[in-house]
Amino acid sequence: MHCLSYFVKLRPNVRHFSAISSYNIFDSKTKRLQREVAIDLDDNQKYDYLKDEIAYRVVDRVYDIKRHFPLVVDFGSQKGLIAKNLSNETYDTLICCDSSHKCLQRIEGLDGIETISVVIDEEEGLPFRDNSIDLVISSLSMHWINDLPKAFAQIHRCLKSDGVFIGAMFGGQTLFELRSSLQMAEQEREGGFGPHVSPFITAQDMGSLLTRSGYNLITVDTDEIKVNYPTIFELMYDLKGMAENNALVNRKSLLRRDSLLASAAIYQTLYGNTDGSIAATFQIFYFIGWKPDPSHRKPLERGSAQFSLKDIPNLDKILKDTENKS
Rank of each mutant, 00 (worst) to 15 (best):
D64S: 14
I65M: 15
P70K: 14
P70G: 11
V72D: 06
V73R: 13
F75I: 03
F75G: 03
S77D: 05
K79E: 07
G80F: 07
I82V: 14
I82W: 01
L86R: 01
L86E: 01
L86S: 02
N88F: 01
E89V: 02
T90Q: 11
D92S: 14
L94G: 03
I95Q: 04
C96D: 05
C96L: 04
C96Y: 02
D98E: 09
S100K: 09
L104G: 02
R106D: 05
E108S: 09
G109A: 05
L110G: 05
L110F: 00
G112W: 01
I113A: 03
I113M: 05
I116K: 12
I116N: 04
V118Y: 06
V119H: 00
E122Q: 12
E123D: 11
P127Q: 08
P127C: 05
D130N: 15
N131Q: 11
S132K: 08
S132V: 07
D134E: 10
L135Q: 10
L135R: 07
V136W: 08
V136P: 03
I137V: 15
S138N: 11
S138G: 11
L140T: 10
S141I: 09
M142E: 02
M142V: 12
W144G: 08
I145N: 06
N146Q: 00
D147A: 07
D147I: 04
D147H: 04
P149W: 07
P149C: 08
F152N: 04
A153L: 13
Q154L: 07
H156K: 13
R157I: 07
R157K: 15
K160M: 12
S161A: 00
D162T: 02
D162K: 13
G163Q: 11
V164L: 07
F165A: 10
G167V: 10
A168D: 09
A168K: 11
G172Y: 13
T174N: 14
T174W: 10
L175T: 05
L178F: 07
S180M: 13
S181C: 04
Q183K: 12
M184F: 10
Q187E: 15
E188F: 15
G191T: 02
G194F: 11
